[in-house]
Design a protein around this nucleic acid. Structure first.
Lengths: 258, 258
DNA sequence: TCGGGTCTTTCCGTATTACGGAAACGGTCG
DNA sequence: CGACCGTTTCCGTAATACGGAAAGACCCGA
């Protein structure tokens, strides 16, 4: 009746509902595990009432949880289904015994990673008792171009991914980081022929890592293991047989377990 | 034009889109980590074309992945965000060192679990080298009424949850499983006063477990740890101080790490 | 106690996005 | 080659999602 009260058509919209719901997941991050509704909306780039509505559905199912203060957290139910991810928990569980052996024998840092697009995701990390501190987090991402595991994964990645990375400016972490695409390209070829990769102080000036590929039953590279040691404590040549044989053991275990 | 060709209104629909997408997640399970589109639809109880459409969106984001054969799997991206779940990976990571100590010292099975509704979810499990085989899976569910961790979680659960479980038929696993609500109710009171729970051959005839509560900074019970040993190898009284002190250490660690 | 600020929840008229049967497509096996 | 089983595409209809605005909660500091 009152034309001024008439709501004016309301309808920018943006895309499929599911994608908006997934944007909500993206709002969470290592530094942001607990968010207010307002933060959630801001970080997801969605209107407040939209997030309010969608988040309520996610909470009802258990994909999100609200704590005593009403803040939103990633829910246990989501964690449960994620535990079924073959490249996540699945891989982690099957590889773990071998990673532990590696850790026991060397007392150094052990890492397990897979490629996701043009980055890597750490699937497991065992911190050696008296090892160089490494700042990796399980579930965390990192560039493919610098670490041992990254070089292995990149060396066996599809052409497009290599191209993409070689044609963009390569991030530098230390003076030793290789940033020349030419040099990196040749290094990838070496990784393929040698069956292992060495990252010599490319991430931090005091660490060196040696990594080897893990393959599935069709011989495709699906993951990589590495040992990360203090620079100078071990030579790459001393470590590579160890890492390679562990990688092969894991590959075999994966092929065996259906 | 041709009335016979006119599509007949098509529109049962069922509910919010997001909930349908979440039903797709529910289709996955320990025995079903890799599913065809048809299986996915059948197990989710949704029409094929609906699942096809929604799954495509989930794949695009990375919540699901398709393998070489086109089968659907839980995606790494989902696992990444799930790694931010405070009651999942968050708890697991902080508790792990203490669980490992427990494992090292006893060489027995160690379990960490939280309550989700009227069941428990295992957040971590360390298999002792020469310990009784236990069939628990990280991310797996179990009844609250039988295990050590379950009794602890149930003893400190809200009234409604206790009522619900005590009023339903309690599942029996062995001749020693307590199924009498009266007895169980008294046992829960003991658990609260003693600060630990004992499950004496209630799940399998050869195993006994002793569990203690993990508390948050407000003293609320949020998880439980347990040692699972072969029946007869240890007395509960020998184990309870160990388990309780570990539980307290974990509680303290949680309170400290903001 | 009050006023201002911030965050959360509810409301509701509109139309965009989702729906899903059916038919075409594709691969595999005997 | 034909039958079978799973996947993908199509598209007319309408149910579900949209989101600005206003009302509620809550928390401080004065």
């Amino acid at each position: 009746m009152d034309p001024a009260r008439r709501r004016p058509s309301v309808r920018p919209a943006t895309g499929p509902v599911v994608s908006r719901a997934l944007q909500i997941f993206e709002a969470f991050g290592p530094q942001h595990t607990s968010l207010t509704l307002t933060d959630l909306a801001r970080r997801a780039g969605l209107p407040l009432s939209t997030v309010h509505r969608l988040a309520a559905e996610l909470v009802a199912w258990g994909a999100l949880e609200r704590d005593a203060a009403g803040r939103y957290n990633v829910g246990l139910r989501l964690w449960e289904v994620a535990a079924l991810a073959p490249r996540g928990q699945g891989l982690r569980e099957r590889a773990l015994p071998y990673l532990e052996d590696l850790s026991q024998v060397t007392q150094e840092n052990v890492q397990l990673a897979v490629r996701e697009g043009s980055e890597l995701v750490f699937v497991e990390r065992i911190a050696g008792s008296r090892a160089v501190p490494v700042h990796t987090r399980v579930g965390g991402r990192f560039a493919l171009s610098a670490t041992g595991v990254g070089l292995v994964l990149l060396a066996h990645a599809p052409r497009e991914v290599q191209q993409e990375i070689l044609s963009t400016t390569i991030e530098r972490f230390t003076p030793h980081t290789i940033t020349d695409p030419q040099v990196l390209f040749r290094m990838l070829a070496d990784v393929r022929t040698n069956g292992f990769a060495v990252s010599d102080r490319q991430v931090t000036v005091d660490a060196l890592s040696v990594a080897a590929p893990i393959r599935d039953r069709h011989n495709a590279v699906i993951a990589a293991v590495s040992l990360v040691v203090r620079y100078g404590s071990f030579s790459p040549h001393a470590l590579s047989p160890l890492v390679r044989s562990s990688a092969r053991a894991i590959s075999r275990a994966l092929a065996a377990s259906d």
